[in-house]
Amino acid sequence: MSDTLAKPKTYLGVPVHRPKVAFFELSSCEGCQLQLLNNEATLLDFLSLMEVVRFREGMTGGTDDYEIAFVEGSVTRQDEVERLKKIRETAKVLVAFGSCACFGGVNQLKNRFSMDQVRKEVYGDHPIDTDVARPLESVVPVDLRIYGCPVKKEEVEKIVTRLALGSEVFYPRYPVCMECKANGNICLFELGEPCLGPITRAGCDSWCPSNRAGCWGCRGPADDMNITQMVSIMEKYGFSRETIVDRLECFGGFSAHIETFRDAVDIREKVQKT
């Protein structure tokens, strides 16, 4: 099999480089990597574009001779910091793979609490090294991001194909609403459901809204999104600040934008307590 896979490919006469890639996971559910294995129909084509040298979910063993590293998960422990730095040293291209790697993901919800509280709640008296959950780029520079919780395999294939061709990788810069309308969905606000579709980067083909579940923003902010207006729209539809902030904070993609709204919640809580 490896013979046919290793045969050099070209596209329109341009040689296509078959990079050695490795997959790694930090604190995560490894669900993004599983997405790749899910697509049996194109798996062989995928492997013919990339030589996978390390992939815990798909193979045993592996080497540390790779050019592209796909790293899933957020950084929550010191040993992960060290591993990530080492990966960065080896990889020519470091890909933040999935929402946890890009923004901290669901993991970063624990950052709302004190780490002592978190450790006690989850592990009791068992000693454990765990700290705030951070995206990869808070530790090392990241070259490429693949958004989503989980990543959308069709998009991953598109990106991988572009990487192999040496073409520029691009994402939709518009929000999920574009795809949601194209899919003919009823706007979830009409059904009384909160949704972050208007400010979240598209590319998921409105996966959740098409299944009548509001968007939680797993792909992070769309370019030039209008979060101030989004929050006031949600308030107009009767959603509380807590509901809104919970949603905005879920995956960490909006963390740079929500300080003002979070403060508003804290202030109100304080007012209620006194």
């Binding site: 006469g13 341009v14 572009r162 061709l165 520029e168 691009f170």
Partner: peptide, 16 residues
Amino acid sequence: AGSLTSFLSRVERGTH
């Protein structure tokens, strides 16, 4: 200056 022109800079004579 973009993805098309960058690929174009890599094609060879004889490409259609």
